Simulated scan of single mutants.
Amino acid sequence: MVEEKNKTESFEKEEAAELESEPVKDEAEETIETEEQVEEHNELSVAKAKIEELEAKLEETENKMLRIQADFENYRRRVRLDQEAAQKYRAQSLISDILPALDNFERALQIKTDDEKTKSVLQGMEMVYRQLLQALEKEGVEAIDAVGKEFDPTLHQAVMQVEDENYESNVVVEELQKGYKLKDRVIRPSMVKVNQ
């Protein structure tokens, strides 16, 4: 039994020696470590928040850039379409100025005469008139068909209404002034009489 008592005492001494050899942490050191951990955690939270903020700003900037890029592409397309239209209809103002001269040619060519000199002058005028029409056709000008066609307010301007049994309702009976189109754009609508 003495031996057992000695063994127990030696075991207790060894344990006490081991405990003495371990560094003892006092409460102050544990508090410092805890404060450092809290501070690290706070810094980490601040860094994460800053990263989220920067990511949001980056996404907003990318969205703005994409919108600006789309706006610029739309602008380029509009400018190209405007340039194409300007090229396509470049002669419109000149043609509009020439149309009254064409009307006067047509009126002059309707004159009937027996005088040879007047006939030769009219033939010369008719040649000039045809050349003028050919030049206009090369630019894409064409006369609008009106008589016998259904009235179309985009092509015709009704100045009179008549009652004629030979025509159906809303059909052009007579053309008072020719209308012209430049390619697909109406330069001047036909002035017409329309059946009721």
Rank of each mutant, 00 (worst) to 15 (best):
A101I: 09
L102M: 11
D103L: 08
D103R: 00
D103G: 03
N104E: 12
N104R: 14
F105Y: 04
F105W: 10
E106V: 00
E106S: 04
E106A: 15
E106F: 05
E106C: 04
R107A: 01
R107Q: 04
A108Q: 02
A108M: 04
A108T: 14
L109C: 11
L109I: 05
L109V: 00
L109R: 01
L109M: 02
Q110K: 00
I111P: 12
I111D: 12
I111H: 00
I111Y: 07
K112H: 09
K112G: 05
K112N: 06
K112C: 05
K112S: 08
T113N: 11
D114H: 13
D115F: 03
D115G: 03
D115A: 04
D115Q: 01
D115I: 00
E116W: 09
E116H: 02
E116Q: 06
K117M: 02
K117E: 05
K117C: 04
T118K: 02
T118Y: 05
T118V: 11
K119Q: 01
K119G: 03
K119W: 00
K119V: 01
S120Y: 08
S120V: 09
S120W: 08
L122H: 10
Q123G: 08
Q123A: 08
G124F: 05
G124P: 03
M125C: 00
M125N: 08
E126Q: 03
E126L: 01
E126C: 11
E126W: 01
M127I: 07
M127N: 14
M127A: 12
V128C: 11
V128I: 14
Y129F: 00
Y129K: 10
R130L: 09
R130V: 04
R130H: 05
Q131K: 09
Q131R: 07
L132F: 09
L132P: 06
L132S: 15
L132E: 09
L133A: 08
L133D: 13
L133G: 03
Q134C: 13
Q134G: 13
A135Y: 10
A135V: 07
L136W: 10
L136V: 03
E137Y: 12
E137D: 14
E137C: 08
E139L: 15
E139M: 15
G140P: 10
G140A: 02
